[in-house]
Computed example of a mutant assay.
Amino acid sequence: MTDLILHHYPESPFSEKVRLILGYKKLAWNSVHVPRIQPKPDVVALTGGYRRTPFLQVGADVYCDTALICDVLEHVQPEPPIYPPHIKGVARIFAQWADTTLFWTAMTYNIQPKSAAAMFPSEAVAQAFMADRKAMRSNMTQLRAADATSAYRSYLRRIAHMADEHDFLFGAEPCVADFATYHALWYTRHRAPVMADILQATPSLLEWMDRMAALGEGRPEVFSSADAITVAQKAEPMPAGQNLLVDSAFQDDHGIPLGSEVTITAESFGTESTVGTLVAATRTHYSLSRTDPRAGAVHVHFPRIGYVLRKADPA
C-alpha cells in the first residue's frame, strides 16, 4: 500500500473533516502544507488546475474533493466504517447538505469584520485571502451576514436535537454525516472564537464536538510538496478499475467516450478546470490522465456530483 499524502493547511475546515476521519480510522499519513491562496504551483503540478483544499495523493493518483476522499479512505480502511450499511443513504445525503448549505452558511457567519482581526495576522493578509476566495466563488450566491446568522442558529438547534438523542448524530458511533457537519462548527469554535458564542445555546452540540475532537488526527508525518511531486514522478498511476475507487463500469451520460480529451470543472466554488484524457467515467467518479513536466504521468479523480464534464476545445 502506497502512503497516503494529504495536501492541506491547518486552518482549512474541509481538511479538518479529513484529518478526523484519518484519526477515526487510526491511519498513518504524510502531511503536506499547501498555500491558502494562489499561487499554488506545486498543487497545480499534481492536479492540473484544481486548487481547492484538501486533496489526497496516493503515488501518482490524485483524489479531489472530500466526498471522494471519504470513499478512498473507506476502501483503504473499512473498519470502523463511516458508511454504516443501515444508514448509508441518509448519512451521505446529510453529509452533502452539511458540506454545502451548512458550510456556506457557517462560513458567512464566521468571517465577518469583527472576526477577521483574530483570524489574519494583518489587514493585507486578510484582504488577499478575501480577494482569493471571491475569485473562487464563481456562480455562487453569497448570503448576507444577518441572513446567515439567522439560518446558522436554526441549523445548530436542529443538529443539537440529533445530538440530544445519541452520542453521535445517527447513533452510538460517528458516520460521514458527523465529519461533514463538524468541520464548519470547528471553524466557528477554534478559528473564529470571537464568533463562538452562537454555540453556547446548544450545549449538547458542544459535548458532541468534544467527542468528535477526541477522535484525533491519526498518525501524521511532516512531508514536503517537493517530495510529494517526486513520489508522483517515480510512480505509475493505478490502472482505471484497479485504483482505490470501488466502481469501474463505464456510465456514459454525456456521449463522451473514454479516451477523449476533456475538462472537468467544479460547478461553483473553485472553477479552475483540469484538462486531460478521460480514462474512467463510472456511476460515482471521473478519472483523467494527464502529464506534468515535474510530476510526470498522473491520474486525477473527481466525484461526479458537483463537477461538470465537457469535451476539451480543439487546439
Rank of each mutant, 00 (worst) to 15 (best):
D313N: 02
A295E: 03
F120S: 04
A180W: 05
R283Q: 14
A124Y: 02
S204V: 11
V72Q: 03
Q96K: 15
Q57W: 02
I229M: 04
P35V: 08
L278F: 08
A228G: 08
K26P: 01
S204N: 15
I229R: 06
R158M: 09
R92L: 15
F129W: 14
L278R: 12
P237L: 00
A249C: 08
P39K: 12
T101C: 06
H86Y: 14
F223D: 05
P303H: 10
G276Y: 00
A151M: 13
D65I: 09
W104K: 03
L169G: 04
S115R: 05
S273D: 03
L22H: 13
K26F: 09
A172G: 11
E74N: 13
V279D: 00
N30V: 07
P239Y: 00
H7T: 03
L185I: 15
A126V: 06
H86K: 15
T265A: 12
H75M: 13
K88I: 10
Q142A: 05
R191P: 05
L56A: 04
S248W: 07
L215Q: 11
E217F: 07
S138Q: 06
V32E: 02
Q251G: 03
F168K: 01
T47K: 08
F168M: 10
A196L: 07
S287N: 08
A214W: 02
S287P: 00
P174A: 11
A213I: 13
N139Q: 11
E16K: 15
E272W: 00
S268Y: 08
H33T: 14
L185R: 06
P239F: 00
P54V: 00
R133T: 09
Y24Q: 05
P220G: 12
R211Q: 10
Y83L: 14
V300C: 04
A146T: 13
I264Y: 06
D61M: 00
N110G: 07
E207Y: 04
